[in-house]
């Protein structure tokens, strides 16, 4: 801090005249000159909207409260915490009949389970493939690496729409593939991946599993790349020493590879958790939250409130919930990563 610095200077050179305010704040002034444009812009379109959002969430801001110049303009009215109450009690259907499949706690629970199940697959598959691809003497490594990066390279939006197409109930690629693979066991009418309402396993609809497949496809390459980077920085001597001590390959994987991968994998996993938690494109374009809102996650639900139903007040209250929940998640993950760091010594 500039002030601390200058006070130290003053203490040591006490015979010098006290520096002027202009000189003392010099570093801070330079810094704020550099920050100025970014701070102005962010104050207006990043920080102010967050404050505005809190105000909106306490009003009945609706589609006709946007533009004051039209005839049916209705000024937003203060309603206290009514929006929050409606959300927590799943009573949004009283505002808009479209929303009768809205279930806040189900959506939150599904969102957490969705994140957890995806990240487990991403990280474990990512590590396994990275380790196998790193085996010395494997042929065509470069070709495999070039292929494996493809899911990261394509835009997420396009990937999501492609998988939506592949899970089509009639001529989708997945059904055509299963038809060949299963032969006569394949149901005559095809598998309706995305619309089938009845849950198939663990109380989750088929569309969840379809999206899980799509998102595993999408997510593991990133973990593999991070793990490969970390693997290549593990010194070979460690393995040689372990072999001399009689460790098997399996032992070495658990006692050398995994612990040394952790410093790289923990931040990547946290990144993965937050990205998957907010994975809008995959859910919105593949299942659209359906059937009957069973696979809705928080962001898609918020988006539907704001875009589909134009319920800005309720959408703002819902977004405040997202803020709180994400705040909690990031606090937990920050704590986990700190524990992991201290464990690494």
């Amino acid at each position: 801090m500039a002030s601390a610095e200058s006070s130290v200077e003053r203490a040591s050179d006490s015979d010098l005249p006290r520096q002027s305010w202009w000189t003392r704040t010099r570093t801070s002034r330079t810094a704020y000159t550099y920050l100025f444009p970014a701070l102005i812009v962010m104050a207006i379109i990043t920080f102010y909207p967050i404050v505005y959002q809190f105000w909106m969430s306490l009003t009945d801001f609706g589609p006709s409260s946007i533009n004051p110049n039209v005839a049916n303009y209705k000024a937003p009215e203060y309603v206290g915490f009514q929006n929050y109450r409606l959300i927590l009690q799943d009573k949004l259907a009283t505002v808009d009949a479209d929303l009768n499949s809205f279930r806040f706690w189900r959506t939150l629970g599904f969102n957490i389970w969705w994140t957890f199940s995806n990240v487990v697959f991403h990280v474990s598959l990512g590590i396994v493939i990275a380790v196998l691809l790193n085996v010395e003497g494997l042929w065509f490594k470069k070709i495999y690496r070039a292929i494996y990066i493809l899911p990261m390279v394509l835009p997420q939006l396009v990937i999501a729409t492609i998988w939506r197409n592949m899970f089509d109930a009639k001529e989708g690629a997945v059904n055509l593939f299963l038809k060949i693979f299963l032969g006569p066991a394949f149901p005559e009418a095809g598998i309706d991946w995305l619309q089938r309402v009845e849950p198939v396993a663990f109380g989750l609809p088929l569309s969840y599993f379809a999206m899980l497949i799509a998102n595993i496809w999408l997510g593991w390459p990133f973990m593999t790349i991070v793990a490969t980077g970390a693997l290549q920085s593990i010194p070979k001597e460690l393995y040689e020493a372990a072999s001399i001590d009689g460790a098997t390959g399996w032992n070495k994987f658990w006692t050398i590879t995994l612990p040394l991968l952790r410093p790289a994998m923990v931040p990547a996993t946290i990144l993965g958790i937050i990205q998957t938690f907010n994975l809008f494109h995959v859910i919105y374009f593949i299942s659209g939250g359906g059937p009957l809102g069973q696979t809705e996650i928080l962001v898609t639900q918020a988006y539907k409130l704001i875009n589909g139903n134009s319920l800005f007040g309720i959408g703002a209250a819902f977004s405040v919930f997202i803020f709180i929940i994400l705040g909690c998640i990031s606090a937990i993950t920050a704590r986990i990563s700190r524990v992991a760091e201290s464990y690494d010594g």
């Binding site: 505005y52 909106m56 801001f61 946007i66 907010n278 809008f280 704001i306 703002a316 977004s319 994400l326």
Partner: peptide, 13 residues
């Protein structure tokens, strides 16, 4: 950490 959609309502308004 926040998804862009979480500030969509105030930005649009």
């Amino acid at each position: 950490l926040m998804p862009g959609i979480a500030t969509l309502a105030p930005l649009f308004a």
